[in-house]
Simulated scan of single mutants.
Amino acid sequence: MSAGQMHPGMYPVDGDLVRRLVAGQFPQWAELAVERRPSGGTVNAMYRLGDDMVVRLPLVQSGAGDVSMEQVWLPRLAPHLPVRIPEVLGAGEPALGYPWPWSVYRWLAGEHPEAGALSEPVPLAEDLAAFVAAMRSITLPAAPQAHRGGPVASLDAETRAAIKQLREIPQEGVDCDAAAAVWEEALRAPDWDGPPVWLHADLMPGNLLVDGGRLASVIDFGCTGLGDPACDLFPAWNLLPRDAREVFREALVVDDETWIRGRGRTLSQALIALPYYRRTNPAMACNARHVIRAVLDDG
Results as ranks from 00 to 15, higher is better:
Arg76Leu: 14
Arg56Ile: 08
Asp52Asn: 10
Asp202Lys: 03
Ala230Gly: 10
Met10Glu: 15
Gly173Pro: 04
Pro144Phe: 04
His200Gln: 12
Leu233Pro: 07
His112Asp: 11
Leu21Pro: 03
Gly15Lys: 06
Asp255Phe: 12
His200Thr: 00
Ala109Ser: 15
Cys286Trp: 15
Ala288Glu: 08
Val43Leu: 11
Ser217Arg: 12
Arg245Leu: 11
Ala181Ser: 15
Tyr277Phe: 15
Glu114Ser: 12
Met46Thr: 13
Asp14Phe: 03
Gln269His: 13
Val83His: 06
Phe248Arg: 09
Ala230Pro: 00
Leu57Lys: 03
Arg36Pro: 06
Cys231Asp: 11
Pro75Gly: 06
Asn287Ala: 09
Arg136Cys: 08
Asp228Gln: 00
Asp52Ala: 15
Glu114Ala: 14
Leu199Ile: 06
Glu184Asn: 12
Ala115Cys: 08
Leu267Gln: 01
Leu124Gln: 02
Ala134Ser: 08
Leu296Gly: 02
Asp256Glu: 15
Met69Gly: 13
Asp177Phe: 15
Leu118Thr: 06
Gly227Asp: 04
Asp232Cys: 02
Val122Gly: 09
Asp177Gly: 14
Ile85Tyr: 05
Pro241Asn: 06
Ile169Thr: 06
Asp193Thr: 14
Arg265Thr: 05
Leu271Cys: 11
Val88Glu: 02
Trp102Tyr: 00
Gly110Phe: 00
Leu187Asn: 05
Leu77Asp: 02
Ser217Leu: 05
Phe248Ser: 00
Arg293Glu: 13
Leu57Glu: 01
Pro101Leu: 05
Gly63Val: 01
Leu140Gln: 07
Leu271Asn: 00
Asp14Thr: 02
Ser137Trp: 01
Gly63Asn: 06
Gly264Asp: 01
Ala143Thr: 05
Val295Tyr: 09
Ala130Ser: 14
Pro38Trp: 05
Arg84Ser: 13
Ala285Phe: 04
Leu166Asp: 07
Phe234Ser: 14
Trp198Glu: 07
Gly90His: 13
Ile138Gly: 03
Glu114Val: 15
Val60Glu: 05
Ala216Val: 08
Leu74Met: 04
Val291Pro: 02
Pro79His: 04
Ala283Leu: 01
Ala115Leu: 02
Ile292Asp: 08
Gly213Ala: 07
Gly264Gln: 02
Gln5Leu: 14
Thr258Asp: 10
Arg245Cys: 10
Val18Pro: 05
Leu118Asp: 04
Glu111Trp: 04
Arg20Gly: 10
Glu31Pro: 07
Gln145Thr: 14
Gly150Gln: 12
Asp127Ser: 09
Asp156Thr: 08
Asp66His: 15
Pro113Met: 09
Leu96Tyr: 01
Tyr105Lys: 08
Ala161Phe: 11
Trp237Ile: 11
Tyr276Gln: 08
Val104Met: 12
His7Leu: 00
Thr139Ala: 15
Ala142Val: 06
Pro229Asp: 03
Leu49Asn: 01
Ser119His: 07
Glu111Thr: 06
Arg19Pro: 00
Thr258Lys: 09
Gly116Leu: 01
Leu166Pro: 07
Leu209Ile: 05
Trp107Ile: 02
Lys164Asn: 14
Asp232Val: 01
Val254Asp: 03
Asp193Cys: 14
Met284Ala: 15
Pro79Asp: 07
Val174Arg: 09
Asp52Ile: 08
Gly150Ala: 10
Trp107Ala: 06
Leu166Cys: 09
Val13Gly: 03
Leu233Val: 00
Ala143Cys: 04
Arg278Ile: 12
Ala236Cys: 03
Asp66Gly: 12
